[in-house]
Design a protein around this nucleic acid. Structure first.
Length: 291
DNA sequence: CACTTGACCTGTCCGC
DNA sequence: TGCGGACAGGTCAAGT
């Protein structure tokens, strides 16, 4: 999916576009994309006004005046695209990925009282939109287990190292992808931050020197912040709330750079291999393996 | 408990 | 051109 920077970019867009709007109708064509009790939908979604758009890890939270929230996970291919009543069709051909909506990937459609529309598109149907009382959201199982927000000031290198202890025997790549260690990192930013800190993804956590873990901590924050500034990464499907691509991918050092020269000009080529069951990109020369 | 693998889905790309 | 298999940014459940 969209990882933390992509979800944050969608959040920023939606905050500008939909806060204050009142929901008029909702339709869906795939039950698992919208697994909600119709009674609750009628009582607490229809007629409710959007009061805030928040994010926790890779999860979007749309708070409603009914004291309920729409909790949304985009997983691999989810998109939330807003269309005002005057916007239609594709935007600029260079930065837009979605054309006329709804299309065959549209799973959920929310219509506002001013006739503007929010589409939840999701090619692979892994994502979902759930209606939950706002106060109960932090108590949902997966929310409770989440690790710290990497961009919060409280996420110090000390906290990072402490959190990593729960996955000391696995690879650092698997540990970074584990949302209970740190929330919001996915495959792209795991590879990027490990390259920046010079650690091979197959390194075993407990064998990595403290100094390198501190470098990794810094790299994670830097890379996530830069990506948010660039509007996230568009590899295949990701678009922001206006249906436009992010540009971070063109700043990526190793992700999807197989067989291209290492950006450090060390002379070797970026390699692609499998670590922790995921496609993984590294420079064999600049990243050290600790085992 | 820690860790790994398969499943959930659709679409695209690559090799035969 | 057609077809099978691998793979894709994420997370669970089930297995060892």
């Amino acid at each position: 999916m969209p990882e933390l920077p992509e979800v944050e970019t969608v959040r920023l867009g939606l905050q500008k576009l939909i806060v204050g709007k009142t929901i008029a109708t909702v339709t869906f064509d795939w039950q698992k994309s919208f697994p909600n009790d119709p009674q609750l939908v009628e009582s607490f979604l229809i007629g409710a006004t959007i009061v805030a758009v928040r994010r926790r890890a890779k999860v979007l939270l749309i708070d409603l005046s009914s004291q309920y929230s729409l909790v949304i996970h985009l997983k691999m291919t989810g998109q939330l695209v807003y269309r005002g009543k005057s916007s239609f069709g594709a935007g600029h051909p260079n930065d837009s990925l979605v054309g006329a909506l709804p299309d065959r990937s549209t799973r959920v459609t929310l219509t506002f009282s001013d006739k503007s529309v929010l589409y939840f598109n999701d090619q692979r149907k892994f994502g979902w939109v759930r209606l939950i009382p706002t106060l109960e959201v932090p108590a949902i199982d997966f929310m409770k287990k989440l690790g710290p927000e990497p961009l919060a000031p409280t996420f110090t290198d000390k906290v990072f190292v402490e959190r990593l202890k729960r996955r000391s025997k696995t690879t650092i790549k698997a540990a970074l992808l584990d949302q209970t260690v740190v929330a919001g990192i996915g495959n792209i930013y795991a590879d990027e931050s490990l390259f920046l800190s010079g650690i091979d993804p197959a390194s075993i956590v407990k064998a990595i020197p403290n100094k390198k873990l501190k470098a990794l901590h810094t790299a994670i924050i830097d890379v996530l912040q830069l990506s948010i500034e660039k509007g996230g990464s568009t590899d295949k499907n990701y678009v922001n709330a206006e249906g436009k691509k992010g540009s971070y991918i063109s700043f990526a050092k190793v992700f999807r750079k197989e067989n291209q020269p290492c950006p450090n000009n060390c002379g070797s080529l970026i390699q692609k291999r499998r670590v922790a069951g995921r496609g993984t990109h590294t420079c064999p020369k600049c990243q050290k393996v600790y085992v």
